[in-house]
């Protein structure tokens, strides 16, 4: 063997190949007896090695495969197809995974988040598209049934669509999880006081008072409470106090004018009695 190694490189190569095949056969038998190979595998591999070894030993120099003459145009066609498919797939992946610039459409999960949809429901509501707002908010509530802001907005929509019962139910749901939710307390009170039933109205006033006791930053509860004080309780002093509190809280100009007018009216009515 040593002699062979030292002979020409081609000979060395063949010898090495032969050595390797012999070694592989030994290995194979060891592995088979170890149980690493099952009988089937062992047999196929042994036959294969044996055949290769025999072929080599017979020194059949040209065991190369006759390379099948390929139609080179068809070959190119295939390459083209693969390239096109590859680039298209790559482009698709880039489009679905890459970072988007602002303003690009299809901003993925973001626009579908309940919070975002709630915002669009709010804008629809303020634009007085009650049907549209209700459609959106119902979708939001289906995905996030516990979301308090959504519940409150939904109640607002119901109230505007003169369905006070549904509104109250949803507000109660909010208050169950967040007993100090000012918006819910205010709206609940406001709905209740307008139902012509003394007990219910008292409950409504209690609700409004609770909202005010939390010292909200918005003006709504004060306006409502003032309204109640003036129209239901005839308590002008409390009404004026409430309206003034509302004025302190930066209401829109139209309301400011209206409130100032009412306050003046009430004070002028009060004055004679006071004197």
């Amino acid at each position: 063997m040593k002699e062979c190694t030292q002979s020409s490189s081609g000979g060395a190569k063949l010898t090495e190949e032969q050595e390797f095949l012999l070694r592989s056969l030994d290995d194979l038998e060891k592995e088979h007896s170890n149980g690493d190979l099952d009988d089937n595998e062992y047999e196929t591999l042994r036959n294969d090695y044996t055949h290769r070894l025999a072929t080599l030993t017979r020194s059949l120099a040209g065991f190369e495969t006759p390379s099948p003459s390929q139609n080179s145009r068809r070959y190119l066609w295939w390459i083209g197809v693969i390239a096109v498919v590859g680039i298209a797939a790559g482009y698709a992946v880039a489009q679905s995974s890459g970072l988007r610039a602002p303003g690009e459409p299809l901003s993925g999960e973001i626009d579908r988040s309940p919070r975002n949809r709630l915002a669009s429901a709010q804008s629809l509501f303020f634009a007085n598209d009650l049907e549209g707002a209700r459609g959106v908010i119902e979708e939001v509530l289906r995905d996030a049934p516990e979301m308090t802001e959504a519940l409150v907005l939904s109640a607002q929509i119901h109230e505007r669509m003169t369905n006070p019962l549904a509104a109250i139910r949803q507000l109660d749901q909010v208050l169950e999880s967040e007993p100090k939710n000012i918006d819910a307390l205010t709206l609940r009170g406001w709905i209740l006081v307008r139902i012509d039933e003394p007990d219910v109205q008292i409950e409504g006033i209690r609700s409004l008072d609770e909202a005010i006791s939390l010292q909200p930053v918005g003006f709504d509860p004060y306006v409502f409470r003032g309204f109640v004080a003036r129209e239901l309780e005839n308590d002008f002093i409390l009404a004026i106090e409430m309206y003034e509190m509302a004025l302190d809280r930066d209401p829109p100009d139209a309301m400011r004018a209206e409130l100032t007018r009412i306050i003046e009216e009430m004070s002028s009515e009060l004055q004679p009695t006071a004197e």
Binding site: A83, V85, G86, I87, A89, G90, Y91, V93, A94, G98
Partner: peptide
Amino acid sequence: WIVPVFVAVA
């Protein structure tokens, strides 16, 4: 994004 996918397909 495109190159690796292309390489994979190719």
